[in-house]
Design a protein around this nucleic acid. Structure first.
Lengths: 230, 230
DNA sequence: TTAAATATGTGTATAATTGACGCATATGTA
DNA sequence: TACATATGCGTCAATTATACACATATTTAA
């Protein structure tokens, strides 16, 4: 095994959070190197004796201290040979969702240079990270239609209007409130609690919880959770 | 940039072909090393100045001489640190489909050790390639439902019954012949020719062609090509 | 204190789609 | 000539999607 290869392998994480009717992305300000002070995705090089999964979790922990709710591999970026000006780097990008209660960053960790940005107001990003974010957004949009993944962006207890707003703002389209509610309820994976939200205006709304057990059961039976409104 | 990292990066291709009502996978017999004479997926190490895409195309050309109809990144395997007994290798797996007329391998190339295997009769595979094939099969099954990808596995001119059999055998379920035809025709992406197939039994069947231009047009308009039969 | 504004919760009529079939047609074969 | 086989076209009931109407529970403003 005397192959000469000097390609480095990294992982990057696109962390999405949802708050104030707005999808946010978590970015890190670069501390060193030629790209110092530029914003970039959470990420770093993979260690020799570390799995890709461990690497991305380590970076998330070290750089942000955040607890993600959902994590899956997105895509591996290695077609643009000069995507990193320092050397040839192939990066395995991951896609993560966090509960909206995690949106307040703890200042005590190494996360002092981490910051949330609304998806519509991203700063200039280092490397090809703009492209990675674009792809992640597309993935989020299509996953939302075929998989009830929106719950991973909300607190445990949520209002139907919050879920509806999440779908509207991420998919960038109008959805009929009543048909949306009927559709979600028909799946039988959300349950009404006896608590109420604390909105100021209008009739008080019940809080709901997502039943992950029921969801996994239905998923195993091959049930399709399509939420597609023309 | 004085990072010490000794992970190697490779690409692998899962090439699917369809013939005789059966899905096939293209495998290569290993020539050297500890795994000599074992069967494995098409693949190899990425060169320093070569994109991942170029690497997988080069390997496909060198090892099989085949022309693929469809190629997309599948998944990057790098969680099992000992997936390759020689050293730490992260492999970017690609998913390829070939026209059934490509199923006859040309003996003139370096492809002498390449061979098609029905998906149900795979030999023991080297590395974690069994796992990769499993994932590729799942991807093929789900793509088939949301994207008219079956045409990439058939000759340019095909019978409706061939397309139907392809869906039945890959999705492993019965599909009503008449409803299937109606559904596909409703998309407006296949066109009737004035030629007929050469089956022995029954009423002669018209040959159809896939209109890729029309497909791309509808795709841009956001049309959904869902083919999902309970 | 009352009306207006706001948002929630439930229902209903119609249009569109799906899913399960029937049957005529065109060939080869017994 | 009848039969087996596969194709091509059509129909109908059941389900699902879509577009709404309206009653309810709260806060705010008159």
């Amino acid at each position: 095994m005397n192959l000469k290869q000097s390609i480095k392998i990294a992982v990057d994480a696109i962390v999405f959070g949802y708050s104030n009717h707005c999808l946010n992305v978590l970015l890190i300000k670069q501390k060193f190197g030629a790209l110092k002070n530029q914003w970039a995705l959470v990420g770093g090089f993979v260690k020799d004796n570390e799995s890709l999964y461990d690497a991305v979790n380590r970076e998330l922990h070290e750089e942000t201290g955040i607890k993600v709710n959902y994590l899956e591999q997105l895509y591996t970026f290695g077609d643009n040979i000069e995507r990193d000006p320092r050397c040839r780097v192939v990066s395995v990008a991951y896609f993560a969702l966090v509960n909206s209660t995690e949106l307040i960053l703890h200042a005590d960790s190494d996360a002092e240079d981490a910051q949330w940005f609304p998806i519509q107001e991203l700063p200039n990003l280092a490397f090809d990270h703009k492209e990675i974010v674009q792809m992640a957004l597309k993935r989020l949009q299509s996953k939302l239609i075929y998989q009830p993944i929106g719950f991973d962006l909300l607190p445990n207890e949520f209002l139907f209007s919050e879920l509806e707003n999440l779908y509207c703002s991420i998919l960038e389209k109008e959805i009929d409130r009543r048909n949306f509610r009927k559709k979600i309820l028909s799946f039988g994976i959300v349950e009404e609690t006896d608590k109420y939200g604390d909105k100021k205006n209008g009739r008080p709304a019940k809080l709901f919880v997502f039943n992950k057990l029921k969801y996994n059961k239905l998923l195993n039976e091959g049930f399709l959770f399509e939420i597609n409104f023309a």
